[in-house]
Amino acid sequence: WVQCTKPECRKWRQLTKEIQLTPQIAKTYRCGMKPNTAIKPETSDHCSLPED
């Protein structure tokens, strides 16, 4: 599990088994990010989705 770092969101998201949760990902994670590439989402507001 990882928490969105966006102050107005802070929702918890479940990561897939393939993703290694590192301190860097935990510090920078935003809803919809692909942690294995550290690319921020380009599409709609993933923070608007219900918490996992």
Rank of each mutant, 00 (worst) to 15 (best):
Q14T: 02
K27F: 08
V2F: 00
P35G: 13
L49A: 12
E18S: 06
I19V: 13
G32L: 01
I25E: 15
T37K: 10
T43M: 09
P35K: 04
I25W: 10
Q24W: 11
C47I: 07
K6S: 07
K11A: 07
E8N: 15
C9G: 01
Q20M: 05
E51I: 06
D52K: 09
R30Q: 12
R10T: 04
R30A: 10
K17I: 00
E51L: 07
K11D: 05
Q24G: 10
A26Y: 08
K34R: 15
E18T: 11
S48A: 13
T28Y: 05
A38T: 13
L15F: 08
N36F: 09
A38S: 12
W1D: 05
T37H: 09
M33H: 03
I19F: 15
P50M: 14
Q3C: 02
E51P: 05
Q3I: 00
E42S: 10
K40L: 08
C31L: 00
N36T: 10
P50L: 08
K11E: 09
Q14E: 03
Y29M: 02
E42H: 11
L21H: 02
C47H: 03
C47D: 10
E51N: 02
Y29R: 04
G32T: 01
Q20E: 07
V2Y: 02
L21M: 07
N36E: 11
L15I: 14
I39V: 15
V2N: 08
D45Q: 14
K17N: 13
R10L: 07
I19C: 14
R13F: 05
T16H: 10
E8L: 03
C9K: 00
L21C: 04
Q24I: 03
K40R: 12
P35M: 15
R10G: 15
K34M: 03
T28G: 04
T5E: 01
L15E: 07
R13H: 08
E18F: 07
L15C: 06
T37S: 11
T37A: 11
G32W: 01
C31N: 01
L21Q: 00
S44H: 12
E42V: 11
R13T: 12
T16V: 08
P50T: 08
E42W: 11
K11R: 10
K34S: 14
L21W: 06
T22N: 06
T37R: 10
P7R: 04
K40H: 15
P7K: 08
H46Q: 11
H46C: 13
P50G: 11
Y29F: 11
I25Q: 15
I25H: 01
S44K: 13
M33R: 04
P7L: 04
L49Q: 13
I19N: 13
K34V: 15
K17R: 10
Q3P: 00
P7E: 06
I25A: 08
E51H: 12
I39G: 14
K34I: 15
K27Y: 03
D45G: 11
H46F: 13
E8P: 05
C47Y: 09
A38H: 08
P7Q: 05
C31M: 01
T28N: 13
L15A: 08
P50F: 07
D45C: 07
P23K: 03
T5M: 08
E18I: 00
L49K: 10
L49D: 07
C9D: 07
P7F: 01
Q24A: 12
K17W: 11
T22G: 03
W12R: 03
L15W: 11
K17M: 08
K17D: 09
T43V: 09
K6Q: 10
A38F: 12
A38W: 10
Q24F: 15
K34L: 14
E8G: 15
L49E: 15
P35Q: 10
K11L: 05
P7Y: 05
D45W: 07
Y29L: 01
Y29T: 01
C31H: 00
I19L: 09
V2D: 04
K11M: 03
W1C: 12
K11Y: 00
Q14V: 04
Q20P: 08
G32P: 07
K6Y: 09
P50N: 07
H46D: 13
T16P: 12
M33F: 11
I25F: 15
D52G: 11
S48I: 09
P7W: 05
T22R: 02
E51A: 07
Q20I: 04
K6H: 06
T5S: 04
T28Q: 11
R10F: 01
C47W: 07
Q24V: 10
W12E: 02
Q14P: 02
I25L: 12
L21S: 04
T5R: 02
E8C: 03
C9A: 05
C47S: 09
I25N: 06
T43E: 12
C31E: 02
P23S: 07
S44I: 12
K11W: 01
A26N: 07
C47F: 04
K11Q: 06
W12T: 02
P23N: 01
C47M: 10
E18P: 08
R10V: 04
S48H: 13
K40P: 12
Q24L: 14
K40Q: 15
W12V: 01
I19Q: 15
C47G: 10
P50E: 06
K40I: 13
L15G: 01
C9L: 05
L49C: 13
K6M: 14
K27S: 12
I25G: 06
L49W: 11
L49H: 09
D45K: 12
L21Y: 06
E51M: 02
Q20K: 14
T43C: 07
C31R: 03
S44N: 14
K17G: 13
N36S: 13
R13Q: 10
P41Q: 07
K27P: 08
A38C: 12
T22C: 09
T5N: 01
H46E: 15
D45R: 08
R10H: 05
G32K: 01
E42Q: 04
P23W: 00
M33S: 09
L15Q: 04
T43W: 09
T22L: 03
K27T: 07
Q3H: 05
C31K: 01
K27V: 00
P50I: 04
A38D: 12
W12A: 02
R13S: 14
P50Y: 09
T22Q: 02
N36D: 14
Q3S: 00
P50D: 12
M33C: 07
V2G: 05
D45E: 11
Q20T: 07
G32I: 00
T43F: 11
H46L: 10
A26W: 06
A26E: 08
Q3A: 02
W1F: 02
G32V: 01
E51T: 13
L49V: 14
I25P: 03
K40T: 14
E8T: 14
Q24R: 04
V2Q: 01
K6T: 10
Q14Y: 02
T16K: 09
K6E: 08
K40C: 09
L21F: 06
S48V: 09
Q24P: 01
V2P: 00
N36Y: 13
C9Y: 02
Y29A: 03
L15R: 02
Q3Y: 00
P23D: 00
C4K: 02
P50A: 12
H46S: 12
N36Q: 11
N36P: 11
T16R: 12
C9S: 03
Q20V: 09
L21D: 00
L49G: 12
R13V: 10
